[in-house]
Each structure stands twice: as structure tokens, then as C-alpha cells.
Design a protein around this nucleic acid. Structure first.
Length: 343
DNA sequence: GTGAATGATTGCAT
DNA sequence: ATGCAATCATTCAC
């Protein structure tokens, strides 16, 4: 009520805006002096009440006159200001929204997965990282890799299409509401700030829809990724050449088949596999060899011969008769073979 | 379909 | 952290 009083008082105080000024030519009612606010209010209230008794045409005419009045913009601005100070200020306090951590998380994830960021790099980088984490060999990964990328691109496409749709709907709706409010602002006090706030509310509503989209996109990516990783878990045998390289090292270091970190890296590079795969291979090989030496005898002899021949060739080329690097003291039992290669 | 081979994983010991 | 041993899960040859 205080506000209303102030508002009406303010109205009265606005350069002595009288009923006649507002457009009632035959009215005998006059705006009272500034020194009598009580009387002013009573008078104005009476005027308002009188409107209900008027005919529709009269009211229309009065409205039209009011709209045309030279003081109308000033009057509206005052009303807007009052409205701003009272109703809007109460609601407006908590409207400054801080960045939502949930949406930030989703944004970060979509960016990291290459869904929301620039087209190239992200997705394949994530796939490569996934491949590396799974320890898959690079030569067999290409099919699944491209499959992963294709699926990710599909998700990306859907995501962007939906996002665009929402953004378009949002801007259309915002325009509609803004036009509506601008239209209404001719007949009731609506400040630009109020329109701005309304737009912010609309944007918030739409961004909550966008968050749902982001959430479901993230879920889709996670599912795709877990499927991809599961697929990577599928074992692929190493190629023949890689097995040969590993066996060569194993049997030529039978006394101490424990490659150093550097040797593992070297072998991994040669075989096109990861260091941990080399470690796995040697772990498996050692235990399986130890468990059943007899079974590996033939293989051991084969590689021993190969090593001996290679060494012989090397020494022949270097004209130096150094023996091959197969010291065998205290290690795994060596296979039986003659130095010339006969079993 | 079956069994052997083989890469990966897990739990434990050092 | 590394290696061993057992085991799992998949591939491959038959």
C-alpha cells in the first residue's frame, strides 16, 4: 500500500498531471495542488472508480487520449522505475546464476570426447587413448578404431542437430515473448530491464533442456566407449614376425630371460606392441617354458640354431670369432643342440 | 564342436 | 614395482 501511495503521489507530482491533461475535456475534476497528497489520492481513486461506470467507447477514447498524451513516456518511465524498485528487485536478487558445476562437467566431458569441440582430433585422440589404455596392438585396431569414430561422429551429428533445434526454438520463443512484451509495454509499464529478465528466464528454461540433451549425449558416449573398450579386450594373436622376434630374444637369453626396461621398449617397437604386452608375453613364456620344457624343446632348438647361424654370419662378416650371446648359467635349462646346428 | 595355443588379468610374494 | 602362478577368454587348427 505504501508503494501504491508513493506511486500515486508520484503520479500526482509529475508536473501536475491533471485529469484534463490525461484527456477528459469535459471533466470538471481538477488536479489539486502538490501540498495536498491525501486529497489527491482520494480524487484519483474516485476517478479510477468512475471509469467502471463509463461506457466502453468512453473508456476507449480515454485510453486513446492517454496514449497520445505528451507526458505519457515520462509517466511510464516513472511507473517502470517504481515497479523496478519494488517487485522486480525482490525477485532479482538471486537471479544472477553462477555457472552450474553439473553443466560444466558435461561440457568438459563432451569437449574431451570430441563431441562438442572442433571436429578433428578429439574423438580420434580419445579412441587412441582408449586403445593405448587397453594395450591393443595398433595394427589390428584400425577397423574398430574407425568404427568407434564413425559412431562418435553419429552421436556428434545428432547432438549438434538437436542443439541447433533447441537454440532456434529458444530464439524464436524469445523473439515472440519480446515482441509480446514490447506490444504490452504500450499499455502497461514494462521496463527494458524487465524484458531482459524475462529473456533470461526463457534462456534458463531452455538451457535446462539443453542440459538434458548433454546428459543423454554423455551417456551415449560412455556406452559407446565401454563397448569399444570391451571390443579391444578381445585378444588378437601377435603376428608371426613379432612372435619370432620375441622368441629369438627369449631363447638367446634363456639363462636370464628377463629383458630390461630398455630391451622391452626395443622389442615393443620392433614388434609393434606395447611394453606391457612384451612383459605379458615374457611372463607367459617363462612360466610355460618352465612348466613343460620338453614341449618347447623343438622350438628352443630351432631358435638356438637360428641364433647360432646369425652369430656365425655376423662373425664371418666381422672376421672375428666371437661366440653368440647365449650364456647359460643358472637360468632356465637350455635345449640340446650341437654348435654346428645339428639336433 | 573340440582342444590346444595364447594374450590378458588377477592375486600373491618378494 | 616386478615376477610368478593360476586362471580366464579368445583364437585357431582340426
Amino acid at each position: 500500500m505504501d508503494d501504491q501511495t508513493r506511486m500515486l503521489a508520484g503520479l500526482g507530482g509529475l508536473g501536475g498531471l491533471s485529469q484534463a491533461d490525461v484527456g477528459d475535456p469535459d471533466s470538471v475534476r481538477k488536479q489539486q495542488s502538490l501540498g495536498q497528497p491525501q486529497q489527491d489520492i482520494g480524487d484519483i481513486l474516485q476517478q479510477i472508480m468512475a471509469i467502471t461506470d463509463e461506457s466502453l467507447d468512453e473508456a476507449q477514447a480515454r485510453k486513446h487520449a492517454l496514449n497520445c498524451h505528451r507526458m505519457k513516456p515520462a509517466l511510464f518511465s516513472v511507473l517502470c522505475e517504481i515497479k523496478e524498485k519494488t517487485v522486480l528487485s525482490i525477485r532479482g536478487v538471486q537471479e544472477e546464476d553462477p555457472p552450474d558445476p553439473q553443466i560444466m562437467r558435461l561440457d568438459n566431458m563432451l569437449l574431451a570426447e570430441g563431441v562438442s569441440g572442433p571436429e578433428k582430433g578429439g574423438g580420434s585422440a580419445a579412441a587412441a587413448a582408449a586403445a593405448a589404455a587397453a594395450g591393443g596392438s595398433p595394427n589390428d585396431g584400425s577397423i574398430e578404431h574407425s568404427d568407434y569414430r564413425a559412431k562418435l561422429a553419429q552421436i556428434r551429428q545428432i547432438y549438434h542437430a538437436e542443439l541447433e533445434k533447441y537454440e532456434q526454438a529458444c530464439s524464436e520463443f524469445t523473439n515472440h515473448v519480446m515482441n509480446l512484451l514490447r506490444e504490452q509495454s504500450r499499455t502497461r509499464p514494462i521496463s527494458p530491464k524487465e524484458i531482459e529478465r524475462m529473456v533470461a528466464i526463457i534462456h534458463r528454461k531452455f538451457s535446462s533442456i539443453q542440459m538434458q540433451l548433454k546428459q543423454s549425449t554423455c551417456e551415449a558416449v560412455m556406452i559407446l566407449r565401454s563397448r569399444f573398450l570391451d571390443a579391444r579386450r578381445k585378444r588378437r594373436n601377435f603376428n608371426k614376425q613379432a612372435t619370432e622376434v620375441l622368441n629369438e630374444y627369449f631363447y638367446s637369453h634363456l639363462s636370464n630371460p628377463y629383458p630390461s626396461e630398455e630391451a622391452k621398449e626395443e622389442l615393443a617397437k620392433k614388434c609393434g606392441i606395447t611394453v606391457s604386452q612384451v612383459s605379458n608375453w615374457f611372463g607367459n613364456k617363462r612360466i610355460r617354458y618352465k612348466k613343460n620344457i620338453g614341449k618347447f624343446q623343438e622350438e628352443a632348438n630351432l631358435y638356438a640354431v637360428k641364433t647360432a647361424v646369425d652369430a656365425a654370419n655376423a662373425s664371418a662378416q666381422a672376421s672375428q670369432a666371437n661366440s653368440p650371446a647365449t650364456p647359460n648359467s643358472g637360468g632356465y635349462p637350455a635345449p640340446c643342440y650341437t654348435p654346428d646346428g645339428r639336433l
